[in-house]
């Protein structure tokens, strides 16, 4: 990957962007899929991120590139989240799953967990995802998101508590 990036760095913008895309698409899609509600939303998110990369200076070097792309992606998601928050202010509250089918129950349980995650602000959600699912250390998360380590740790702690509150309450309802 480093070789591809180095070769593309001195090449045409299209070549560099292609190398950027091929090097980072999978990582960005995984993050986007975990940040967004649906696969097509995640794809739109990744596409918009790379389109912005096509229009801007992206710092060179794998680490700087990844951090730039991750921050743009999370920022786009934050904008979407804020707009949706205004739009959905009067939407009905989450409905608890009621099902007798085990397959459907498993699906609904997953949905419940994921909707609890969706309730977190995007940057906090990104911190939780990166730590709990991508298993990145705090310093790495902070560097990727361009925030201080103490801020990343605060988001993680707050996010965990919020999830535990929602999911704990849900488990209680199911008894």
């Amino acid at each position: 990957m480093a070789h591809a990036l180095a070769a593309a760095a001195a090449g045409e913008p299209a070549e560099r962007l292609a190398a950027l895309f091929d090097s980072h698409y999978s990582r960005l899609y995984s993050l986007a899929r975990r940040l967004a509600g649906r696969a097509d939303e995640a794809e739109d998110l990744v596409q918009e991120t790379f389109l912005r990369a096509a229009r801007a200076h992206v710092p060179l070097g794998p680490t700087q590139e990844e951090a730039w792309l991750v921050r743009v992606l999370v920022n786009i998601r934050r904008d979407q989240w804020r707009r949706a928050a205004v739009r959905d202010r009067h939407a009905p509250a989450m409905v608890s799953p009621r099902s007798t089918s085990s397959g459907e129950a498993a699906f609904l349980a997953r949905s419940t967990v994921w909707r609890a995650l969706e309730a977190l602000p995007p940057r906090r959600r990104a911190v939780v995802i990166m730590h709990e699912l991508e298993e990145l250390p705090i310093w790495k998360i902070a560097a990727l998101l361009g925030i201080r380590g103490v801020t990343a740790r605060w988001h993680l702690s707050k996010g965990r508590r919020q999830l535990a509150d929602v999911l704990g309450a849900h488990r209680g309802e199911g008894r």
Binding site: R33, R34, R110, T112, V113, E132, L133, L163, A164, L167
Partner: peptide, 10 residues
């Protein structure tokens, strides 16, 4: 919470 997230990971 981590186990629940992993189980629900899309």
């Amino acid at each position: 919470v981590q186990e629940m997230l992993r189980e629900a990971d899309p």
